[in-house]
């Protein structure tokens, strides 16, 4: 493999509860995702896919095991460092969009840039960057609209723009079409495909086999372990 590894985990384990009530939500999961891959994670509820998603998205830390994101060991980072990783390296797309209400699309997209303390940018520069990404997702004419004035599909586009604005190495999508009608859902999937074709690395959690079939690989989880990994007949981009 010539491409670099974006995600590399070794024996990720997450244990909830104490004593007899101990439950292993994740039990020794080791996966790798290369740059430019589009991977789906599937599994029934309780299989540990949300837990894995949270760890991969640096929203929580595993009880044990190692996680290398873009060649950096992030399993031992503290809260502040994790916040920095989330800001610079990861873009999230949620099922329920999670946009700030009563805040314009533009301001929502600017937000990750405001929390970026590594790059010096003026307010004008931030707006420019955010505008560019909003144009890319086809919302150039909606930038001053607030979420409640936008359709579900449009809101998800704003969320995608927000995920992309800091040029992350990894996009985490959690049921990105779950709240959308099939037409809007198809449009969002098309947008993700476009991003993938431009070289983005995407990990998507879904319960729908149809949606998962858009990806190159599907990782099936069961009871906190990898059940199977199925190639979806699409070649990983080299």
């Amino acid at each position: 493999m010539a491409t670099r590894l974006i995600i590399k985990t070794k024996d990720l384990t997450q244990i909830y509860g104490m004593g007899d009530a101990r439950v292993a939500a994740l039990d020794g999961v080791s996966i790798s995702v290369h740059e430019g891959e589009f991977v789906a994670i599937m599994g029934p509820s309780g299989s540990g896919k949300s837990t894995l998603m949270n760890i991969l998205g640096c929203l929580s830390r595993p009880t044990s095991g190692a996680y290398f994101l873009d060649d950096e060991d992030v399993s031992g980072l503290d809260k502040v460092e994790l916040a920095g990783i989330r800001n610079k390296k990861i873009g999230y797309i949620f099922q329920s969009y999670n946009l700030l209400s009563r805040t314009t699309a533009l301001d929502n997209v600017v937000l990750p840039l405001q929390y970026d303390r590594l790059t010096e940018r003026t307010t004008e520069e931030r707006k420019k960057v955010a505008m560019k990404v909003l144009e890319m997702v086809g919302l150039a004419d909606r930038v001053e609209h607030q979420p409640q004035e936008l359709s579900g599909g449009q809101q998800q586009r704003v969320a995608i723009a927000r995920a992309l604005v800091n040029s992350p190495v990894l996009i985490m999508a959690d049921e990105p079409t779950g709240n959308l009608d099939s037409k809007s859902g198809a449009e969002i999937m098309q947008l993700l495909h476009d991003l993938h074709n431009q070289g983005a690395t995407i990990v998507m959690v879904t319960h729908s086999t149809e949606i998962a079939s858009h990806t190159e690989r599907t990782i099936h989880l069961l009871d906190g372990k990898i059940d199977k990994i199925i190639g979806n007949g699409k070649k990983a981009k080299q």
Binding site: G57, L59, K79, V80, A83, G84, R86, N87, K88, Y92, N98, L99, L100, L111, P112, Y115, D116, R162, N166
Partner: peptide
């Protein structure tokens, strides 16, 4: 939401 996009404590 703010935390997920990089806000520190």
């Amino acid at each position: 939401i703010r935390q997920s996009i990089g806000a520190t404590p």
